[in-house]
Simulated scan of single mutants.
Amino acid sequence: MTDGSEAAQQEEPQLTVGTLVFDTRKKVLGVVMDTEWDRLYLRPPTGGIEWDASRADLRPATVTDRLRPALAERNERSNWSTRWE
């Protein structure tokens, strides 16, 4: 028989260094660069300034999360080109 702590550990996703995550507070993707207690240090996937976030504000990135930035960029370019026609 297992106790509640084992079940909680199995359900909590492992957010290790190199994992692509979604910061629900800032609404951005980040790559885990380091961990310290319940804080994780993230950097944008394309590089940039690191920030820290609480583990409670993070979840593994979904396919939708991964595609959202590329789609937004594509839409912006599409809207920009139609302005000059």
Rank of each mutant, 00 (worst) to 15 (best):
M1S: 13
T2H: 15
G4E: 05
S5H: 03
S5P: 00
S5Y: 06
S5W: 00
E6G: 08
E6D: 10
A7K: 06
Q9F: 15
E12S: 09
P13S: 08
P13C: 03
Q14R: 09
L15V: 02
L15W: 12
T16H: 14
T16D: 14
V17L: 12
V17E: 15
G18C: 11
D23F: 12
T24E: 04
R25C: 03
R25P: 11
R25V: 11
R25I: 06
K26S: 04
K26A: 07
K27A: 01
L29G: 10
L29M: 07
V31T: 14
V32M: 06
V32S: 05
D34Q: 12
D34K: 09
D34V: 03
T35L: 04
E36H: 02
W37A: 09
D38P: 01
L40F: 04
Y41T: 15
R43S: 00
P44K: 05
P45S: 12
P45K: 00
P45M: 09
T46G: 13
T46R: 13
T46I: 12
G47I: 03
G47Q: 00
G47H: 10
G48F: 07
G48E: 13
G48Y: 08
G48W: 13
I49C: 01
E50I: 04
W51N: 03
W51E: 14
D52L: 01
D52W: 13
A53Y: 13
S54A: 09
R55P: 11
A56N: 12
L58Y: 03
P60E: 01
T62E: 05
T62W: 07
V63T: 07
V63M: 11
T64V: 05
T64E: 07
T64G: 03
T64A: 02
D65M: 01
D65G: 01
R66Q: 13
L67Y: 08
L67R: 14
R68C: 08
R68M: 08
P69K: 11
A70H: 10
A70Y: 05
L71H: 12
L71D: 01
A72Y: 08
A72I: 01
E73D: 11
E73G: 07
E76D: 01
R77M: 09
S78P: 02
S78M: 05
W80G: 02
W80I: 01
W80A: 02
T82P: 06
T82D: 03
R83L: 14
W84E: 01
